[in-house]
């Protein structure tokens, strides 16, 4: 009964970070700066895990995550700010808009073999920023100001758990297995009857859905969104998290997203310097440990508990 084991501990592990931080927030023990870092951590985890679905699990290099995040952020912000729709509905519509944009970019590029997705998504990110800069309705280059601050720790944590569960279950489903097969060998996957285009597009637009969601959460936390907040450098940040954490490791992405966010906060004033370090890290990791730091391993609570149990003596005694 491996599946039902440790349900209690799993629930505890799931709720512990939430309760702990909610408690600290309530007690006023977290400064504003720390709170921003904390929220960015959550948003970055959603971004990293969703990009990992595309890059790590399906093996397709996408370089426009910030662009899809922008689509979600602007859609959700316009919905709450200008059309006065409820927060939850706006967030989900933002995610769907990003997903639709992903479909438009993914369909022509993913049906081909080769690396066209990388260049198309890179271009898409730039185009989205170009368009947003020129549309007066969303504020042009100055951006959208005065978005209500609706993203709370509770909302963020809820969507974070939803993303993790969603991606984890997707990866362990038939669809996810097909994606893994495509990553390993596209031609072999095709010969065993996997519709490679279909699964690549599904994984890509699902990843973009979560990116859009993260965008909506971001917009409703920072009051202000500008086209320049969604530059290529943000996409690159997320890619670094995925690569460092491990291509195909969800827990790796979570840890790397937390680490990189902390590092970003600490090196805030040294933006170029930070990017140089990250780019070097990326090259070095690819040369010496191409599967990423965690590789494809997952950190699992059940396994950890079991190991501890074994160390102490036979289980159940």
């Amino acid at each position: 009964m491996a599946k039902g084991k440790y349900i209690f501990w799993r629930l505890v592990a799931l709720l512990l970070p939430y309760v702990l931080i909610q408690g600290l927030l309530g007690a006023g023990l977290i400064s504003d700066f720390q709170q921003i870092t904390l929220m960015m951590m959550g948003i970055n985890i959603i971004l990293a895990v969703s990009l990992n679905l595309i890059v790590g699990f399906t093996g397709q290099l996408a370089l426009g995550h910030a662009g899809f995040m922008a689509v979600g952020a602007y859609t959700a912000a316009v919905l709450t700010l200008k059309i006065h729709q409820p927060f939850l509905l706006s967030l989900i519509l933002g995610g769907l808009a990003a997903s639709l944009a992903g479909l438009l970019v993914g369909l022509p590029t993913l049906r081909l073999k080769g690396d066209y997705l990388a260049i198309a998504t890179l271009g898409f990110g730039e185009i989205i920023r170009g368009i947003l800069n020129n549309v007066e309705y969303v504020g042009g280059a100055a951006g959208l100001l005065g978005i209500p601050r609706l993203t709370t720790w509770t909302w963020l944590y809820g969507f974070l758990v939803l993303t993790l569960l969603g991606v984890m279950n997707f990866v362990n489903s038939t669809h996810g297995r097909a994606c893994l097969a495509i990553r390993e060998d596209e031609i072999a996957a095709e010969t065993v009857g996997i519709n490679t285009t279909y699964y690549k597009v599904v994984a890509f637009s699902l990843g973009d859905f979560f990116a859009g969601l993260a965008g909506g959460l971001y917009a409703h936390y920072f009051y202000l969104i500008q086209p320049s907040s969604f530059s290529f450098f943000r996409s690159f940040d997320v890619l670094v998290m995925v690569v460092l954490g491990g291509l195909g490791s969800i827990t790796g992405s979570v840890l790397a997203a937390m680490g990189i966010t902390l590092l970003n906060a600490l090196l805030q004033d040294l933006a170029e310097f930070r990017m140089i370090i990250y780019s070097l890290l990326l090259i070095l990791v690819m040369i010496f440990r191409p599967q990423g730091l965690m590789g494809r391993r997952e950190w699992s609570l059940a396994r950890w508990l079991e190991k501890r149990g074994e160390a102490r003596g036979p289980a159940g005694s």
Binding site: G59, D115, F236, I276, L280, M286, I287
Partner: peptide, 15 residues
Amino acid sequence: PRLAALITAIGVSLF
């Protein structure tokens, strides 16, 4: 794999 080479290329570009 090709993916590794592509990611390296992006790294070089950013560098």
